[in-house]
């Protein structure tokens, strides 16, 4: 299974290969193509996502919370499965319990009122734990930034979502609506931060790429890891040299 995923990741990386380009980050060998896709995504954001997110933010706080709760709830089955794959059984149990209890309201209300929410886990993170290489940075139309590994993980999560195997029309509808709901709530809940990148950054593409890698590393390594982070090492080296 792990070998198959490594091959899939490499194939996906190969599909997007183009002639050598001048790149600003070695993790991003298809930068010129990625920048064009990023521009397309920004245009979609201008016309669709930002106005919809503005509408979302105009909703009463309770409605926003309910939609955010629902988007989080739809991710619990995937979190439960992937936590199990990674040996994080406590997180898997927590995600399962919260999915079942909050399922009484389709996830719109948080009935558990538990401060200890499960850590989100996806198949990209599972592959990282299995030491599948992350591959290259690829910006996908509409889906946004990722690495070949995370994009493969996204496809696997979408195909294997337990909601899809329930055979219930309601479950299928929820599964189909989960991605757009997550995108809108994410854009709405991070409205100022994303607009700050979009309108204030000197290079929004490079800033997004940097934020993506750092955030993703935090998800994979764990924010509370005692091991020195890449940033710690970078600063330590810098202070040694200067």
């Amino acid at each position: 299974m792990r070998k198959l995923l490594s091959v899939m990741t490499l194939v996906l990386a190969g599909c997007s290969a183009t002639s050598p380009e001048i790149v600003s980050d070695n993790r991003d060998p298809y930068e010129n193509t990625n920048r064009k896709v990023f521009e397309f995504n920004m245009a979609v954001d201008d016309v669709v996502l930002e106005p919809v997110a503005r509408g979302y933010r105009a909703l009463p706080d309770g409605v926003q919370t309910a939609l955010t709760n629902h988007a989080t709830w739809t991710s619990y089955p995937s979190t439960a499965v992937n936590s199990t794959f990674q040996g994080k059984y406590e997180n898997a149990a927590l995600a399962t319990i919260q999915f079942l209890i909050n399922g009484l309201t389709l996830g719109f209300a948080d009935l558990t009122e538990n401060d200890d929410d499960p850590e989100p886990e996806d198949f990209g993170q599972t592959m990282a734990v299995w030491n599948v290489p992350q591959g290259d940075y690829v910006v996908m139309p509409l889906l946004g930034p990722g690495t070949t590994r995370s994009h493969v993980g996204w496809v696997v999560d979408a195909v294997t979502n337990p909601l899809g195997f329930m055979g219930e029309p309601t479950a299928d509808t929820i599964r189909m609506a989960s991605t757009p709901t997550s995108i809108v709530t994410f854009r709405g809940n991070n409205y100022e931060q994303i607009n700050d990148i979009k309108y204030n950054a000197i290079d929004p593409y490079a800033k997004t790429r940097s934020l993506y890698f750092q955030y993703r590393d935090g998800q994979i390594v764990g924010l509370n890891s005692a091991a020195p982070s890449d940033a710690d090492k970078a600063f330590d080296d810098f202070l040694d040299e200067n």
Binding site: I202, D203, R209, G218
Partner: peptide, 18 residues
Amino acid sequence: ENISMLITQQQENTAIIR
């Protein structure tokens, strides 16, 4: 949340120069 302001600025600046 694991996002360093200065690493982000450095990577953005490096991209501009390259």
